[in-house]
Deep mutational scan, measured.
Amino acid sequence: GGHPVTTQMVETVQNLAPNLHPEQIRYSLENTGSVEETVERYLRGDEFSFPP
């Protein structure tokens, strides 16, 4: 991942996926670069990993 992630982006995802840890959200956003894509992954039931 190398996309810039803002606190705003993390908070937006958190509102839609409250049971995800912020670190999981941030890591996913760094890989996708997209709030929409991260939320899609969540709704699909994809696994969210923590940063290594």
Rank of each mutant, 00 (worst) to 15 (best):
G1Q: 14
G1N: 12
G1F: 12
G1E: 11
G2K: 15
G2D: 10
G2R: 15
G2I: 14
H3C: 14
H3Y: 15
H3G: 10
H3A: 09
P4R: 15
P4Y: 14
P4F: 15
P4L: 15
V5L: 06
V5A: 05
V5Q: 02
V5I: 12
T6S: 10
T6N: 07
T6Q: 04
T6P: 05
T6D: 07
T6G: 03
T7E: 14
T7L: 14
Q8F: 10
Q8A: 13
Q8E: 14
M9G: 02
M9I: 02
V10Y: 05
V10P: 00
V10R: 03
V10N: 02
V10H: 02
V10L: 11
E11S: 10
E11K: 12
E11N: 12
E11Y: 07
E11G: 07
E11D: 11
E11A: 12
T12L: 15
T12N: 10
T12G: 06
T12I: 14
V13C: 07
V13A: 06
V13W: 00
V13N: 00
V13Y: 00
Q14M: 14
Q14C: 11
Q14L: 12
Q14T: 07
Q14I: 09
N15C: 15
N15P: 06
N15Q: 15
N15F: 12
N15G: 13
N15I: 14
N15T: 12
N15L: 15
N15K: 15
L16E: 05
L16D: 03
L16Y: 11
L16T: 07
L16I: 14
A17F: 15
A17D: 01
A17E: 01
A17N: 02
A17W: 05
A17L: 13
P18F: 05
P18V: 08
N19F: 10
N19K: 11
N19L: 13
N19T: 13
N19A: 10
L20M: 05
L20S: 00
L20A: 02
L20E: 01
L20C: 05
L20F: 02
L20H: 00
H21M: 08
H21P: 02
H21S: 13
H21C: 13
H21N: 08
P22Q: 08
P22V: 14
P22R: 10
P22L: 09
P22G: 05
E23V: 08
E23L: 15
E23G: 07
E23H: 09
E23D: 15
E23Q: 11
E23Y: 07
Q24Y: 02
Q24G: 01
Q24R: 01
Q24F: 01
Q24P: 01
Q24S: 02
Q24V: 03
I25N: 02
I25F: 00
R26G: 01
R26P: 02
R26A: 07
R26S: 06
R26E: 06
R26V: 08
R26C: 10
R26M: 08
Y27D: 07
Y27V: 11
Y27F: 12
S28G: 02
S28M: 14
S28E: 06
S28D: 12
S28Q: 05
S28C: 08
L29K: 01
L29C: 05
L29Y: 01
L29P: 04
E30G: 07
E30I: 09
E30A: 11
E30L: 10
E30Q: 13
N31D: 13
N31Y: 13
N31Q: 15
N31M: 15
N31R: 11
T32P: 00
T32F: 05
T32D: 03
T32H: 04
G33N: 07
G33H: 08
G33W: 05
S34A: 04
S34P: 00
S34N: 09
S34Y: 01
S34K: 03
V35L: 08
V35K: 00
V35Q: 02
V35H: 01
V35P: 04
V35D: 01
V35T: 06
E36C: 12
E36L: 12
E36N: 09
E36H: 11
E36R: 11
E36W: 13
E36G: 08
E37R: 09
E37A: 11
E37Y: 06
E37C: 10
E37K: 12
E37N: 07
E37H: 08
E37T: 10
T38G: 01
T38E: 01
T38L: 05
T38P: 00
T38W: 02
T38H: 00
T38F: 03
T38C: 04
V39N: 04
V39T: 06
V39K: 04
E40T: 11
E40P: 01
E40M: 15
R41K: 11
R41C: 06
R41A: 13
Y42L: 06
Y42C: 03
Y42R: 01
L43W: 09
L43A: 07
L43F: 11
L43T: 07
L43D: 05
R44Q: 09
R44T: 05
R44H: 07
G45M: 03
G45T: 00
G45I: 00
G45Q: 03
G45F: 02
G45N: 05
D46M: 09
D46A: 08
D46E: 15
E47Y: 12
E47F: 13
E47G: 08
E47M: 10
F48Y: 01
F48P: 02
F48C: 03
F48R: 00
S49T: 12
S49E: 15
S49M: 14
S49V: 15
F50I: 04
F50Q: 03
F50C: 10
F50Y: 12
P51Q: 04
P51M: 06
P51W: 04
P51K: 04
P51C: 04
P51T: 04
P52W: 06
P52Y: 07
P52I: 09
